[in-house]
Structures are given as structure tokens and as C-alpha cells.
Design a protein around this nucleic acid. Structure first.
Lengths: 202, 202
DNA sequence: GTCTATAGGAAGATAGAC
DNA sequence: GTCTATCTTCCTATAGAC
């Protein structure tokens, strides 16, 4: 069999799916080998540092994917609402319609957390700041924007957890649908949903 | 039962903290032994089935704790708002002010997920139904109540993830503060959800 | 109930041929 | 780049004394 050269990006995609399935600690070299189709030696050829090296490469790889699916849509031209709607579509792709665990769950616990926690912290912080910028550009005040941005990330992460445990992508899809509203507030055309702001009942 | 040197409840608490620190796969018997102060043989004496047995016992143990901190406050007498406020206090205790990972992160991934996923699914589903009941009792329509209940759980789970990765309990505390509003809608007196709880990114 | 000791296997990682 | 073979370390789990 000739050397069926597998592109590095493809290897990283397969690696990520193994880590997403088993978590960092649970992803043994045997499972990684099975999941990627690469033998142990091939794995160590591509990632001399072993699992740690693989995880680092995955994080760098997902950062690139994040630029395509998340940061790009947010920075591209358009109204804030349009950009957030594109972001929602990008998140849908990035998280495989809500079936994929978030990276914090995979690399933020145990020894992996000690090793990669700071990287994840930086990534999440940067994303929150980015979302807050968009909210500010839509006219919200700085403090309100920061809170909404954090709430939006909280909702996305929580939806991934709940979707997984319930075996349904519905929570994730609902959060994505509400993302523009969560981040920017109710739009000018579609009135605020049954949000009971003036009732005197108690 | 002869006098046990360490009460079973205490053992389970220590066990849970080890699993919360390392996750299921990462919690090796050595680490469990260190974290609990029990030798290997003692552990197998208390849990003949090994790690699987320990995790099962922890899940049963947390179900009891859930009755004290979560279900109890929700079913105890009082207005829906009072009950949800008590629930928030119970969640605060249950999740150690937001510093503890949720069980879905620990036991819902990898082999542990195959083994305990159904249990977690049942637990989360039951909790969502319980929250929806309270929302209905506060006057919300059934569909709205169900959605709000799910959103509330999404927010709590997401806040735990984000709080951990940011190294700050603020997201979790903010979600608990907003929990009555999330679940029941804005109250009759304070209508504006705009709330200044401090600067972001701690 | 807890100890020491150890079995049996799987883990991560490496060496050298091709 | 991939293979087979192997090393060391750590793993879960058990046995038997006290």
C-alpha cells in the first residue's frame, strides 16, 4: 500500500473527534490510533510530544477554525444583527449542530486543565470581548454589552452541555435562534416576546 | 455496622471532590486514595465494584443532596418566587458557589457517559420538569414554562463552565441572581433587567 | 476495615528496520 | 511515514495477613 498521505488538517479533524468522544484523559493512544487510522509511530512522527502535542495542535487548529466560523463572521461588514446571525450560523457549524462538546469540557478538566486552562481562558475572554464590541456597536452601553456578551457565551456553553445530556440538539438550536436577541436586545421589527414587563400582578 | 472510622457520607464527599478535580477517567485509584485518605483495599472494601461502583454511589449520594438543596426548596411552601430564590441558594451550596463542575461534565463524557448517560438524562429531565411546574404555578403557560425551565438549566450549566474557565465565580453568581427572573419573568416591582454587578473579565 | 504485596494488563513513549 | 517490537510506568483489581 503506497503512503496514503493524509493531510495534516484531516488528521487534526480526526484527532479532535476522538478527543471529543472520549475527553482528554479517556483518549488513549489505542483509541486515537483507531480513530485516526494512524499507527502509534505515525502519530509520534506527526506529534513528537505525544498527547500533549496533539492537544496543543488541536487547540491551534480550532483557533483557525474559530477565525473562519466565529471571528470572521463577527468582523465582516454588515449590521450588528447581520453579523450576529452569521455568528450563529458559524457556531452551528463549529459545534456540529450542537452534537460536539465544547473545548472547555475536553481540555479544561484535570491535568489537561492545568496544562491548557490558560489558553482556554484567553480564548473565551477574547470571544466575550468580541461579542461585547458588536453589542456596543449596535448601540448598547458598555456595561450592558459586556454582560450580554458573557450571558451569550454562557448560554451557548450551557446549551451544548444540556443538548448532549438530553440527546437532543434542540436546546442548542434554540440558543442560536435567540442569539441576536440575547446579545443585542429585541429587534425593532419583531416586538419583544411575551416578556411581561408592565404587569402589576404579583 | 461496627463504628466506622470515616462515615460513608464523608467518604462520598471526598470521592466527589476527587472526581470533580480530575474527571472520571482522570481519577486514578492512586489519586482517589490520596484524595480520600483511604488505601486501595479500603476503597475496594467500600466499593467492591471499583471506580464504576464509586461513581454510582456518588450519583446516588448527589441525588440525595439534590433533594436537600434543589428539589426540597422547590417543593416547600411559599410563593413561586420564594421557592425559586431558595432554589438559587440551594444551587449555590450544591455547586460550591460556582467552583464545582457539574456532574454532566464529569460523568457524561467518554466511557462514563456510556455508563451513566441515562441516569444523568433522567436527572436533568426531571429537574427541568420540576422547574416548569413552578413556572406554571406562577401563572405562565405550559409551553412558555417548559422553555424557561430549559433555559434556566442551560444558564446554570453554562455558567458553571464559563466560571471555571475564567477562574471567576461571577458568571455563576449572576445567573443565580437572575434565576427568578429567568424562570418566572420580570417581577412586578423591579422591571428593568439592567443591572450593574461589577466589571467583567476577572 | 485497613494493611502489604502483587498479579495481569494497558497506558504513554521509543528504537530501528524498511 | 509507517511498520513491528519493546521499554517503563502506571493502571485496576485481588489475595491474604492482622
Amino acid at each position: 500500500m503506497p503512503p496514503a498521505t493524509v493531510p495534516r488538517a484531516e488528521i487534526l479533524d480526526r484527532l479532535l473527534s476522538v478527543f471529543r468522544r472520549y475527553g482528554y484523559e479517556g483518549a488513549s493512544l489505542s483509541r486515537i490510533s483507531d480513530g485516526t487510522g494512524l499507527g502509534r509511530s505515525s502519530l509520534y512522527h506527526h506529534f513528537p510530544g505525544g498527547k500533549d502535542d496533539m492537544a496543543s495542535a488541536i487547540l491551534a487548529h480550532t483557533e483557525a477554525a474559530s477565525r473562519d466560523h466565529i471571528v470572521g463572521p463577527l468582523l465582516a461588514p454588515g449590521t450588528p444583527r447581520e453579523r450576529v446571525e452569521r455568528l450563529a450560523a458559524g457556531l452551528d457549524a463549529f459545534y456540529a449542530q450542537g452534537t460536539a462538546s465544547c473545548l472547555v469540557e475536553l481540555f479544561g478538566i484535570g491535568e489537561a486543565g492545568d496544562r491548557f486552562g490558560e489558553t482556554l481562558h484567553a480564548r473565551v475572554s477574547a470571544l466575550i470581548r468580541l461579542l461585547a464590541d458588536v453589542a456596543v456597536q449596535s448601540g448598547l452601553q458598555s456595561e450592558d454589552a459586556a454582560i450580554r456578551a458573557e450571558d451569550a457565551i454562557v448560554a451557548v456553553q450551557g446549551a451544548l452541555v444540556v443538548s448532549r445530556v438530553l440527546g437532543s440538539t434542540r436546546p442548542f438550536r434554540r440558543v442560536l435562534d435567540r442569539l441576536p436577541e440575547l446579545l443585542l436586545g429585541a429587534g425593532p421589527i419583531e416586538a419583544a416576546p411575551v416578556r411581561n414587563t408592565g404587569s402589576l400582578l404579583g
